[in-house]
Amino acid sequence: MNTFGVWLFAVFALSMQAPASASPLSWHEDKGQWSLELNLSDTLTAQQKKLLFSGFSTFSHLEVRMPEASGMRLLFVSECSIQYDLWEEKFDLLYFLEAQHPEKLRSFKDYSDLCLAAALRNADTLRALQSPGQHLEVHLDIAQVSSEFAKNVREWLIQQQSGMMRGLFAHMLGELKMKESLTLDLSLPALPAQRGAPHAKP
C-alpha cells in the first residue's frame, strides 16, 4: 500500500470517530459560592434512555464517590422512581429520596435535573477534589421496577411451554428485569480562572 493510501485511510478513520461528548461535570458560581455540578442526561446509554421512556416504572440510583487513602468516600447519593406516561408524554415522580412529596415532572430535563444531577458544594470536598490526579467515580443504576408487569410477562412465557417443560421452566426462569448500569471515572474540568475560586478561598 502506498503512503497516500495510508494517509487517506487515517483521515477517513479519524473522520468516522464520534465527536467527544461534553463532560458531565462543570463548575458553577453563584453569589461567590462555587459548586461542582454533575448532570448525566447526555451521558446515559441508549439502553438507559430506552428504559426511561419505556413506560415502565423505573428506579434510578446515582452515587458519586471520591477515592481517598482509606477507600472510596461517598459524596452524593440520589434515588428516584419515575414512570413515563407515553400518552401524556410526561414523567410521573413516584419516589424521590430527598423529598417527602413527589413532584410533578413535565419533561426529561425536569427529570434529569432532579434525578440524574448532583451538586457538590462543600468547600473541603471541592478543595480535596482539586488535588493533582484526583477524579470522581460516578455510578448510575437504572432498573425497571414494574414487578407486577414483569410477573405477568413471566407467567405468559411459562404458559407458552407445554407439559413437563412448563413446571421445570417456571422453576428455572429467574426474575425478568431490565437494568443498565453506568460507571464513569471522571476527571475534573479545569477551574475557570475567577476570583473566589475554592482553591483561592480556603
Binding site: Q47, K50, S54, G55, F56, Q144, S146, F149, A150, V153, W156, L157, Q161, M165, L168, F169, M172, L173, G174, E175, L176, K177, M178
Partner: peptide
C-alpha cells in the same frame, strides 16, 4: 413493553433457563 422485557432478558435469563430445562 412485553417485547422489550423479553428482548432485554433473553440472553441472560430466558434462553439459559430454556436450555437448562431442556437439558434437565
Amino acid at each position: 413493553q412485553r417485547y422489550e422485557l423479553i428482548q432485554a432478558n433473553w440472553d441472560k435469563v430466558i434462553a439459559p433457563s430454556l436450555l437448562r430445562s431442556h437439558r434437565l
